[in-house]
């Protein structure tokens, strides 16, 4: 199995993702330059964090027209697993693979710290190793993570259980203080209706090793790889 990690100009978590998939999760990886047009022999696509195109214009808005995006759309429509982390999430929103948009953080500053999220949907390929309501401690690092969408879309997201992670406190309560960036309905991560494209603001690759004192990110990353391995066996 091969994880394809897309490298846009300005991606800066690409190497971190590569390290975690290769060294920690022991799967093969391929860094895919944004000018490539095919995703041949790639089983999972990861859009890593960073500042693609310097976040100029709007976070993710220039990356959406990179040549590789067409291949990613085809890959996603064919049911392939696509994970967008932080800037990757913003790119998925901008490219229409996920609904909604990101606003500047409510307090306007960049925020880098550990936060808690509650797993709202544990039956996805990305969350199968979690239990519903499980609280994960994950780090965030962003300036534009204040998710917004219109009320109709929000109802649809809820109806189809597309809200995957919500910001919460250590006990899993959705308190206002536990929402770091003002995100609508505490949304930290969401998926498409089919459940094969996930975007989230926290960084699971930054908490996948004991050396970094937190392995909660593994619930997500190994769920995703476990799902792929199972499919490969069938």
């Amino acid at each position: 199995m091969t994880v394809g990690i897309i490298v846009f100009p300005g991606s800066n978590c690409d190497r971190d993702c590569e390290y975690v998939f290769r060294e920690v999760l022991q799967v093969s990886t391929r860094l895919i330059w944004h000018c490539e047009t095919s995703l041949e022999n790639v089983d999972v696509v990861v859009l890593p964090g960073g500042f693609s195109y310097g976040d100029y214009l709007r976070a993710g808005s220039l990356a959406k027209v990179s040549p590789i995006m067409n291949a990613i759309k085809r890959f996603a429509h064919a049911g392939g697993l696509v994970l967008g982390i932080c800037n990757g999430f913003q790119i998925l929103l901008e490219s229409g693979l996920l609904p909604g948009a990101m606003l500047r953080n409510e307090k306007l500053t960049f925020i880098c710290e550990d936060i808690y999220v509650r797993v709202e949907n544990a039956s996805l390929p990305f969350t199968r190793q979690c239990v519903p309501g499980q609280v994960l401690k994950l780090p965030i690092a962003h300036a534009d993570g204040n998710y917004y969408t219109d009320p109709v879309t929000l109802s649809a997201l809820k109806a189809k259980a597309q809200i995957v992670f919500r910001y919460c406190d250590a006990q899993g309560r959705l308190t206002a203080e536990a929402n770091p960036n003002g995100s609508l309905d505490h949304i930290a991560g969401l998926c498409n209706a089919e459940g094969n494209v996930l975007g989230l603001m926290p960084h699971p690759e930054r908490c996948a090793e004991e050396a970094l004192h937190n392995t909660d990110g593994l619930f997500l990353l190994s769920s995703m790889l476990g799902t792929m391995r199972n499919e490969a066996m069938v």
Partner: peptide
């Protein structure tokens, strides 16, 4: 102050 700095990118910060 340091909450405004990404102090984790690179996954080396132990």
């Amino acid at each position: 102050v340091y909450r405004q700095y990404d102090h984790m990118v690179g996954i080396r910060t132990i």
